[in-house]
């Protein structure tokens, strides 16, 4: 019989704590597959965030250093500067990267730190219970924007890739999604490309992944995937935002 599905070696054989329909588990698997295929498991060091993915070290079988909320790119900077031969990546949510950790992310990108950021954008604070995120869409209702995000008081959602693209030392920025099989495949290629760029010392790399949060969006998983297509992508269009060939 032909084997068509196997658990990646880098993914620990344990059940995940994520909600049904959550994108984190898919993204974890994609990272594990890429690390296996590129034979980087023994080279990789991940900096997980404070947020839903705080327990990523239970699932990814690689070296991990936890960071305070928002400081993942600073921690990753410290690690990478000491160990330039390793593959160092942070895994951050929208609150972590685009609110409390904006300064760290922006300056790591501007210094051209040879690190990769896996940026999971689900337009909401997940772990704390569905509060407004910097990437929450206009009109989107959350527990702290009960009448919908208002541009006059909360401003528009922050487009992280576009923001970082203007900085001289960001090398590769791409926005992908994990809401359909085709998009999942593209997301995996983007992660692989970012890691490749890092190993070639191209500069700062970031993959923004639009990811469903059915629980906090108060939708079923299918509707959540559709909402990414119909609502999120109109604000956060997919594609390569910046690619400096290396």
């Amino acid at each position: 019989m032909k084997r068509i599905y196997v658990r990646p070696q880098t993914l620990r054989p344990v059940p995940m704590h994520y909600c049904p329909g959550c994108g984190h588990s898919i993204i974890h698997r994609l990272i594990a597959e890429v690390l296996d295929e590129m034979k980087l498991r023994e080279k990789a060091i991940c900096v997980p965030p404070a947020g839903c993915a705080v327990l990523a070290y239970n699932y990814l079988d690689i070296d991990m250093v936890e960071a305070p909320h928002g400081r993942a790119t600073a921690v990753a900077t410290g690690i990478k500067r000491v160990r330039p031969a390793n593959l160092v990546f942070s895994y951050q949510g929208d609150g972590d990267l685009a609110a409390i950790g904006t300064a760290e992310a922006l300056h790591a990108a501007n210094r051209g730190e040879q690190i990769t950021v896996i940026f999971v954008n689900n337009a909401v604070y997940g772990m704390t219970g569905g509060q407004m995120a910097p990437t929450t869409l206009l009109g989107q209702k959350t527990t702290t924007s009960p009448f919908g995000r208002n541009v006059k008081t909360e401003g528009p959602p922050i487009k992280v890739c576009e923001l970082l693209a203007g900085l001289g030392s960001s090398a590769y920025l791409e926005r992908v999604a994990v809401n359909s099989p085709a998009n999942v495949k593209k997301a995996k290629s983007a992660i692989a490309k970012a890691f490749t760029y890092q190993l070639r010392k191209a500069g700062f790399t970031l993959v923004e992944i639009l990811s469903p949060c059915p629980t906090n969006w108060k939708m079923d998983p299918v509707a959540a995937c559709r909402w990414i297509d119909e609502e999120m992508m109109t604000v956060f269009p997919l594609g390569v935002i910046k690619d400096l060939p290396c």
Binding site: V82, A103, H107
Partner: peptide
């Protein structure tokens, strides 16, 4: 660093890396 927050967390990373 861009701030003292970033600086101390770079120390954290460097220390974790040995």
């Amino acid at each position: 660093a861009e701030s003292e927050l970033a600086a101390i967390n770079m120390v954290l990373g460097a220390s974790a890396a040995g």
